[in-house]
Simulated scan of single mutants.
Amino acid sequence: MNVALIFAGGVGSRMKNDSLPKQFLELDGKPIIIHTLDVFENNPNIDAIVVVCKAEWLDYMNELLQKFELKKVFAVIAGGATALDSQYQGLLAIDQQFPQEEVIVLIHDGVRPIIDDNTINNNIELVKLEGAAITVSPAIETVTYIADEKLDEIFDREKCRLAKAPQSFLLKNILKAHKTSIDEEKRDFIDSASLMKYYGFSLGIVEGETENIKITTPSDYYLFKTIYEMKKEYNFNDGGK
């Protein structure tokens, strides 16, 4: 059983849009979140989807699912106080829906719509082999470390990768890590991968595409628009090949 947990909890503050969260901004007649969901909906290896979003947007999200006829979404639930808490609520919903199943869960940003089937499939296969996977892409610019407002270190770009999504795990393992962190009152992890690494789980690497961007700022949206239109015009296959 392979389940996608799509996290759509942003409010769009960096998009300079006060009325509409960034995941609901449209391109080609579809909100960004629907572009993202479509990829998982149409991937034959994904069995089910849960969406987590802000409580005040639950009705609107359900209306979109009905309008665009997304059949694999079994639940739309309200998130928590933080991104990590929201993801935990989604994991609990999956566990409740499929209590007897051995579940692989793929945690993905709702505003990361340029995800391809190869990356999804490779995540699933790597979790089967190693128990956990994180999608990365090459660092295409030099990465530096700043300390006390001064350049402290310059990293070897060939050894650096940018963390992307999905981040994928056996459901029982990621739930165990969450519950332990709640018991220990340690909830300051930046994402699921850092949570899992902290609690001793090994993470396999899926080399994904650089274009698998997270739409956070207006320039990200325009980059998405350009990539989307190029793919549509030239009928690119997965991964832009």
Rank of each mutant, 00 (worst) to 15 (best):
A165P: 00
V111Q: 00
S86Y: 00
V206G: 08
N173E: 15
M196A: 15
E184G: 01
S181L: 10
L203P: 03
Q97L: 01
H108K: 06
T144M: 12
I94K: 05
V127P: 01
D116V: 13
V136T: 15
L175G: 01
A83H: 11
F155C: 06
F169D: 04
I120H: 01
T82Y: 12
V111F: 01
D152N: 14
S86A: 06
D117Q: 12
K164H: 14
E153T: 13
Y88L: 08
Q96V: 05
Y199C: 07
D117K: 12
A139K: 01
H108G: 03
D188K: 06
K128G: 12
K214C: 12
D188I: 07
F169G: 02
H108F: 04
P138K: 13
Q100L: 10
R187V: 12
A83F: 04
L162T: 01
Q89F: 14
N212R: 08
V206L: 10
E153S: 06
D117V: 05
P218S: 13
D95E: 15
A165K: 02
G200D: 08
S194T: 15
T142Y: 02
I174E: 02
L175W: 05
L151H: 02
D95T: 00
I215R: 05
L106D: 01
E101A: 15
A177I: 07
G208K: 05
A133V: 08
A93L: 01
A193R: 13
E207I: 04
L151D: 03
P99Y: 09
L203G: 03
T82P: 06
Y88A: 04
D191G: 13
L106Q: 10
V111Y: 05
I182Y: 14
L129K: 15
A193D: 08
E125Y: 01
I205K: 14
N173V: 02
Q100P: 00
I140P: 00
L195A: 09
L171R: 11
G200C: 09
I94P: 02
H178E: 04
R157P: 01
S192K: 02
K159W: 05
I134K: 10
P138M: 08
N123H: 08
K176Y: 11
N123S: 14
A139G: 09
E130A: 13
